[in-house]
Write a protein that binds this DNA or RNA. Structure first.
Length: 157
DNA sequence: GCCAACGTTGGC
DNA sequence: GCCAACGTTGGC
């Protein structure tokens, strides 16, 4: 089983939006980066767990856990000219972008903020992709050691 | 294949 | 709102 981190802007779709969604499940649409696409398409498996990360907001950080409940399938929002994520270079015959479905497992009782995670950049979280300079990936792998550590932070304080 | 211009991301 | 970092595009 693999662990992941998924970024979402809470202004667009927050963990509370997910909590209110039918079956607490949503399709993770709108990924338009090839590295992220490849991980979604090739490496994300049903049953994998992912941190839900709020980006571009007042307190960026990890806010909960989701489970991958459906493996990669074409991101249909790329086919819709009305959609914000429309990409004319993707078509149903030869889809360029993919998405998975995720289900809410747990919303943390507190935010594990980016600021807090950075405190461990040279220790427990050395090498964590999220903390790498200039990192902009919206989907990234998390090692099991990193997972356990961040999970323990969420339960502390 | 190079690289400048441009758009996006995302912390602050 | 600013701006640095990065990815993509397209002319050559």
């Amino acid at each position: 089983m693999n662990y992941w981190l998924l970024k979402s802007e809470p202004g667009s779709f927050s963990i509370d939006d997910l909590a209110r969604a039918p079956r607490k499940t949503t399709c993770w649409d709108g990924v338009r980066n090839y590295q992220a696409r490849n991980m979604i398409r090739d490496d994300m498996k049903k049953g994998d767990l992912a941190f839900y990360y709020h980006s571009n907001c007042e307190v960026p950080g990890v806010v909960g856990v989701v489970e991958i409940v459906r493996e990669a399938y074409p991101d249909h929002t790329a086919f819709d000219p009305e959609d914000h994520h429309f990409d004319p270079k993707s078509d149903p015959e030869n889809p360029r972008w993919f998405m998975v479905d995720v289900k809410l497992v747990e919303k943390f009782s507190r935010v594990v903020s980016l600021r807090e995670l950075k405190e461990y950049a040279d220790g427990k979280l050395a090498g964590f992709r999220l903390l790498a300079k200039g990192n902009r990936l919206s989907v990234m792998p998390v090692s099991s050691a990193q997972w356990k550590f961040i999970r323990s932070l969420s339960k502390g304080k």
